[in-house]
């Protein structure tokens, strides 16, 4: 498509990755070429960048939708999700899901990006609550509040936690950096 037809929230393929157009700043000398400062968000990693285009430049529009889905279950190395509107099921493989598998709980609402009707990425809730299944007993005094020991969560994820965390506790994890946030309930 012509750069002149691009507006906010258009979905473009840039360097092989799908991007959302966040803003278009149009500058043009009366008789001269138009300059388009286009702010885009990479839909696979969330990074913002600005790209400058000029009159006549062509861009690749792509058909990407962000659908509300629910995580259903894992089957071998497939992770199955269901579209909350169409009830259609989509699966991610191990490689696609990456470390996000550690933050999935059955029934969890997520946003799945579909490109040409194939799932390409997954947006998790900002924080998830997980049960601690294993944690070494702290030998140090409980006044140390830094993440001074490790805990293993129900999904197999290992995270640094304060010394007062015990197996059976429910803790909140920030899915953006994988860090411990707080204890939700004590066992």
């Amino acid at each position: 498509m012509d750069i002149g037809d691009v507006s906010r929230n258009a979905k473009l393929m840039i360097n092989g990755a799908p991007h959302n157009v966040e803003n278009v700043n149009f500058v043009k000398p009366g008789k001269g070429r138009a300059i388009y400062h286009v702010k885009v968000r990479n839909l696979t990693n969330g990074n913002l960048s600005e790209i400058t285009y000029h009159s006549g430049d062509k861009v690749d529009e792509t058909n990407i939708t962000a659908n509300d889905m629910q995580y259903l279950y894992q089957e071998n190395d497939s992770y199955i999700f269901m579209d909350s509107k169409s009830f259609e099921q989509y699966s991610f493989n191990e490689e696609q899901i990456g470390d996000k598998k550690y933050f999935l709980k059955e029934g969890m609402p997520v946003t799945v990006l579909l490109w040409e009707n194939s799932p390409i990425d997954l947006n998790l809730p900002k924080a998830v609550e997980m049960k601690v299944v294993e944690s070494e007993t702290s030998t140090k005094t409980e006044t140390i509040t830094a993440q001074s020991k490790t805990a293993v969560l129900e999904t197999g994820y290992t995270v640094g936690v304060p010394s007062f965390i015990k197996p059976g506790d429910i803790i909140r994890i920030d899915t953006r950096n994988g860090a411990y946030v707080e204890r939700v309930t004590k066992d």
Binding site: G4, D5, V24, N25, F26, V27, K28, A34
Partner: peptide, 9 residues
């Protein structure tokens, strides 16, 4: 003028 839309257009 077709396509001219922005803060000043």
């Amino acid at each position: 003028r077709k396509g001219e839309k922005g803060e000043n257009h």
